[in-house]
C-alpha cells in the first residue's frame, strides 16, 4: 500500500514538473503574442472579443485536460 502511494506521488510530482514547464512556455509564447491582439479586439470589437473569450477558455480547458490525462497515462503506464 505504501509502495503504491509513493509511486503515485512520484508520478504526480513528475507530472506537475512537466506541466509547469509547459505552462511557463505557454505564458511566454502564446499569451505574450495574444496580449496585444486581444487588447485591440476588446477595445474595438466587443462582441467578437466576448465570443472569442469563451472559445479560448473552453479550448484551453479541453487542451489542458487532454494534456494532463496524457501525462498521467504516460507516467503511470496504465489508463485511469
Amino acid at each position: 500500500m505504501k509502495k503504491e502511494t509513493a509511486r503515485t506521488l512520484r508520478a504526480f510530482a513528475i507530472e506537475l514538473t512537466i506541466y509547469a514547464l509547459l505552462v511557463v512556455a505557454y505564458f511566454f509564447l502564446v499569451l505574450h503574442l495574444l496580449g496585444a491582439w486581444l487588447y485591440g479586439l476588446e477595445i474595438h470589437h466587443r462582441y467578437t472579443y466576448a465570443s472569442l473569450a469563451i472559445v479560448l477558455i473552453i479550448g484551453q480547458a479541453v487542451l489542458l485536460e487532454s494534456l494532463t490525462t496524457f501525462l498521467i497515462r504516460l507516467l503511470r503506464g496504465r489508463s485511469e
Binding site: L16, Y19, V23, Y26, F27, L31, L34, G35, L38, E42, R46, Y47, Y49, A50, S51, L52, A53, I54, L56, I57, I58, Q60, A61, L64, E65, T68
Partner: peptide, 27 residues
C-alpha cells in the same frame, strides 16, 4: 458562459488573467 459573454460585452473581462488562472485550476 452566458455571464462571461454579457460581462465581456460591458468591458468587464480580462481573458488573459482568466487563462493564466486557469492553468492552475485545470490541474
Amino acid at each position: 458562459s452566458y455571464g462571461t459573454f454579457t460581462h465581456a460585452v460591458k468591458g468587464n473581462v480580462d481573458i488573459l488573467i482568466a487563462l493564466v488562472m486557469h492553468t492552475g485550476a485545470a490541474i
